[in-house]
């Protein structure tokens, strides 16, 4: 495998006493579509801003295509296509003027491509940007982010604020224009169904920490829900990788990461159980808000007998 297109190593950032990123490390191979998942305030935008050298990190190392944005932000930015969350562009300009203005800053700017895509996306080239609809404005942002054919594309929650149809179209463009041209794409999103279909791999960011990375398929293979009766495992220590425990009277439903190992143990012990597949939505939920306090500590009857 080639060198990672985006490498993040031990990244730390805090605002005052609030730690926004704690030892975040990531490697994204070239050509991969990588989704960054996390709740609001998990640190996605901060991380993306550090990747572009917009804000300095407290410590840690970041490289995009082998270049450190903290040292040479301009080179990084000229090789990266970026679409910010809720981005505004000069409202008084027209799309064509915006392209003309940006062209001198990128040696690889492709004006014909830009015009072609403005046309394809149905953006009026001579209308004021301030008058474009939300969806058109996101698409214009995408055209502007891609017209210099960047090898790396970073999209910060691009689908936010788009209606379902526009979102689907947007994802379609993502698949059609970026994945097929071999771009490395890093994007953040809240819409897990769409992420599952579009992304190769995901990272789950929670409170400034990366709690899990993996390809979507791997994640679904490894994270499973197991159903069994409480008594059968009472007294055993909570297994490694336990994410969420839920008790329904004497039945126990728990979600466990790297489940294969534990399932093997259950089989070896001859304990009755069911393994349930989970959707990405449920997996994300387990990682982010899963609780493990309900794991049965001691068998219920032995507690009653002890006095």
């Amino acid at each position: 495998m080639s060198a990672p297109a985006i490498r993040v190593d031990q990244l730390k950032k805090s605002y005052g006493s609030q730690q926004v990123l704690q030892n975040v490390s990531l490697n994204i191979p070239a050509g991969q579509t990588f989704a960054l998942l996390g709740r609001n305030g998990a640190g996605k935008t901060t991380m993306i801003r550090i990747l572009l050298g917009l804000i300095p990190a407290d410590s840690g190392n970041v490289q995009l295509g082998g270049i450190d944005p903290a040292i040479d932000p301009l080179t990084v930015r000229s090789h990266v296509g970026y679409l910010a969350e809720d981005q505004a562009m000069y409202g008084w300009m027209t799309p064509i003027e915006l392209c003309r203005f940006l062209a001198p800053f990128y040696p690889t700017w492709d004006m014909n491509w830009a015009r072609d895509y403005l046309d394809r996306f149905g953006i009026p080239p001579h209308g004021r940007i301030g008058r474009l609809s939300k969806g058109q404005s996101v698409k214009l942002g995408l055209v502007v982010a891609l017209s210099h054919h960047p090898p790396i594309v970073i999209l910060d929650d691009p689908a936010m604020g788009l209606d379902p149809i526009a979102r689907k179209e947007f994802n379609r463009d993502l698949v059609e224009h970026l994945q097929t041209s071999g771009c490395t794409v890093l994007y953040s999103s809240h819409l897990l169904d769409e992420v599952e279909a579009v992304a190769d791999a995901v990272a789950i960011l929670d409170h400034g920490r990366i709690v899990r990375t993996g390809t979507t398929d791997l994640l679904r293979d490894e994270v499973k829900q197991i159903l069994l009766s409480c008594d059968s495992i009472a007294g055993t220590p909570p297994p490694e990788g336990l994410l969420d425990v839920c008790r329904h009277e004497d039945r126990l439903a728990f979600i466990i990461d790297r489940s294969e190992n534990y399932v093997g143990q259950l089989i070896a012990k001859g304990i009755d159980h069911d393994v349930v597949d989970l959707s990405l939505d449920e997996i994300f939920e387990a990682f982010v808000i899963g609780r493990t306090q309900d794991w049965p500590g001691k068998p219920a009857n032995s507690a009653a007998m002890s006095p």
Partner: peptide, 14 residues
């Protein structure tokens, strides 16, 4: 592959 990916809005590699 490309056509089906586009149609279904699904990752090309899938």
């Amino acid at each position: 592959v490309r056509q089906l990916a586009r149609e279904l809005v699904v990752n090309v590699n899938t």
